[in-house]
């Protein structure tokens, strides 16, 4: 069966004044219908950029330089602006980090919801409002009729994020891209929002691309996980396996750095060094200067993502 979303060898470049920066290199993954994939990595690894390039939202000087993004049989990288606008917010919705910033402060919730529906469907305001109310109930917002007339600043952070999720549900999308949806919220609300997302994806059979740097959140919600480093996917596999038995040295470092994998009273482990800047990536494997298993071949050649003995995809020469 054809997957819902199939990203193949996606490359994104930024044409700067003096050089071309390769921000994404050969990123490939698939999301099946109703499947949930977590994309994790440090800041600047290219997680958000991947999400944005799926909707063709990269702004200049960035551009997609290669690869394909097949969604429901169509290559999104090839579509015109008009065609892609029909997919944005309709078949694929996106949820952003900070719900205060994503809702327009001067428009009521009603205006923003009705407008979203009417951008994609030819229906009356009355009908659109009905759908809006239905979705607000779907995300467990108390007294939804009242919320419609309120402005974003009158609502709490958790409530706002629920409304953002309700807006993303309005057109019954096949895929939701959630870019760190809980980073701006406090921990209890985080759990509620993640449970809600999980429930919605299961009930509506929606695909989810969860972009985050929080491994705990990913392991709770997703079925598959892809770890990114300096614009590449370095390890991909079923979430449980990857979290329990990481194979790539970078993933291992990430998991070891979690506070809960450390004994009480001991120093937290960390991966030495920082992620290289895109302007001067090291030769060979981008991770080699920080890697404890580094050999000569790592400095010369770039490892590709390949299936290892365990059945998992790992981009490392040292993993058999």
């Amino acid at each position: 069966m054809q997957p819902l979303l199939e990203v193949k060898n996606l490359c994104v470049e930024f044409a700067m004044r003096s050089q071309v920066l390769r921000a994404l290199r050969d990123v490939s993954f698939t999301i099946g219908k109703g499947e949930r994939l977590g994309l994790v990595g440090e800041s600047g690894a290219g997680k958000t950029l991947t999400g944005f390039s799926i909707l063709n939202l990269i702004s200049k000087p960035g551009y997609i330089s290669g690869g394909s993004i097949l969604f429901e049989g169509r290559d999104l990288a090839e579509l015109t602006i008009e065609q892609i606008r029909d997919i944005r917010g309709n078949r694929i919705s996106m949820i952003f980090q900070d719900p205060m910033m994503t809702l327009n402060p001067v428009l009521t919730i009603r205006t923003q919801m009705v407008e979203t529906i009417k951008a994609h469907q030819k229906i009356s305001d009355k009908e659109a409002e009905k759908i809006a109310l239905d979705k607000l109930q779907r995300v467990y917002i108390p007294s939804p009729e009242k919320r419609l007339d309120q402005y974003p600043h009158e609502l709490s952070g958790g409530m706002r994020q629920r409304i953002v999720i309700a807006i993303s549900l309005l057109t019954n999308p096949g895929l939701i891209i959630a870019d760190e949806p809980t980073t701006a919220l406090d921990v209890t609300i985080q759990a509620e929002i993640m449970d809600l997302l999980l429930e919605l994806c299961r009930d509506e059979d929606m695909g989810l691309l969860l972009i985050t740097h929080d491994l705990a959140v990913v392991s709770e919600v997703t079925q598959k996980i892809a770890v990114m480093y300096a614009g590449r996917i370095v390890e991909m596999g079923p979430t449980r396996d990857v979290v329990d038995h990481p194979e790539h040295p970078y993933t291992r470092g990430l998991i070891a750095a979690l506070p809960q994998s450390c004994d009480q009273g001991q120093r937290l482990l960390q991966i030495p060094g920082i992620m290289p800047s895109l302007a001067n990536l090291p030769s060979g494997c981008s991770f080699h200067p920080r890697c404890e298993l580094c050999q000569d071949i790592c400095k010369r050649e770039v490892p590709v993502l390949e299936t290892k003995a365990s059945g998992r995809h790992v981009a490392c020469f040292m993993v058999k």
Binding site: R88, N90, S93, M101, T102, P105, L107, E115
Partner: peptide, 21 residues
């Protein structure tokens, strides 16, 4: 600001984003 990005993600036209948002 992100609400403009969000409006683009929703698939609204440029004119609508400019005048309405």
């Amino acid at each position: 600001k992100e609400y403009v990005e969000a409006a683009r993600v929703i698939g609204l036209s440029k004119r609508r984003i400019m005048f309405r948002h």
